[in-house]
Design a protein around this nucleic acid. Structure first.
Lengths: 180, 180
DNA sequence: ACGAAGTTGTTATGGCCGTAACAATATTCA
DNA sequence: TGAATATTGTTACGGCCATAACAACTTCGT
């Protein structure tokens, strides 16, 4: 009997410490009184943990060695696709604050990767544009980042990747309405 | 003919700016020469964007009003489950640097939520422990965070949530071996 | 026993990010 | 037209995080 594969959380060996902790936490939450929602914890934990590991990995492995940062690259990538763009637009599509864009642009401008240009029709406005050096940097970094992302997601089949993208997109579309 | 539901990326209206950008980027990447991997972009973008929105939302809506931060809460939550713990263990299970733990503990200690205790057997070591105030704070914040997480994932059915957790767990288990 | 090597926690420095406040400019509307 | 309001970008401040260097301590190896 009982020769099925063991699907209980693997509390044993050969597990990264973060997953070992997550499995332990799941068991503890389920056996609390009153029992807490262990499934909600696992979903949120895995989502945030994966995002954190992926961000850290891309940052240290791809971008820092090139003198970039991941947020800096993501901003440059948007400029690459969109062309010269106002900070307020960049903040909108990134769901970031305007001051965060200001800071990122300052760093990139110090590195000669982007430049600010005044907008004649509006004395308040500015557009941020890639320099030639920035355009080259974003093109090369994009290729490397894509390659690394493929390594991360290689453990999923094409259908599973599509499924995961669809699930993420559904949550993003039906995000709680009362976001800041 | 052609009365099927339109499954093309919705470039139209009524979309948050970040998703509108993502749909545009996907199209642009697919039509580049040579074509870039638009699916890899979408998966990575949605994953990072969702994590960012969720983190920001939990931070501003749940934890900041209570005088906490999300990283601070997550550390206290670990202490709640594990009991007094050394910073080096906390860094391991969080996949963070030791200095990040030091900083987080400093902030929490200033707020009277945790305390450091020396370890008699090891003159270098310290354990971090919840205070009574910290224990109460983490218990209340946990209930609120779980409620908010449920709102975020309410658009998925139970089977879909389980599926998503499983996909995330698979990636986490088979993470690239050469992480820092 | 004792010096070399490793571990633990901290500090310094720098980047990212949010909120709040601000100056400059644009827009609205009475 | 002119004052009230809104928008844009920036700055100041504080929290988070990483890396690198460091002091204190422990452990290892001979």
């Amino acid at each position: 009997m009982n020769s099925e594969p063991d699907t209980r959380p693997d509390l044993g060996v050969d597990m990264p410490p973060d997953l070992r902790y997550a499995a332990y936490a799941r068991e503890r939450l389920a056996t609390m009184s009153p029992p807490a929602d262990a499934e909600a914890f696992a979903l949120a934990h895995h989502l945030l943990q994966l995002a954190y590991l992926l961000v850290t990995d891309l940052e240290t492995r791809i971008h820092r060695p090139r003198g970039l940062t991941l947020p800096g690259f993501r901003l440059m990538f948007k400029l690459w696709l969109l062309g010269p763009t106002q900070p307020v637009r960049l903040a909108e599509i990134s769901a970031m604050s305007r001051s965060a864009v200001t800071n990122a642009v300052n760093t990139l401008e110090r590195g000669g990767l982007v430049e600010r240009r005044p907008v004649p029709e509006d004395g308040r406005a500015v557009v941020v544009a890639l320099t030639a050096a920035g355009e080259a940097a974003v093109r090369e970094a994009f290729a490397e980042q894509t390659r690394r992302e493929r390594e991360w997601f290689a453990c999923l089949g094409p259908a599973e990747r599509e499924q995961m993208t669809a699930l993420l997109a559904r949550i993003l579309h039906s995000r709680p309405a009362d976001l800041p």
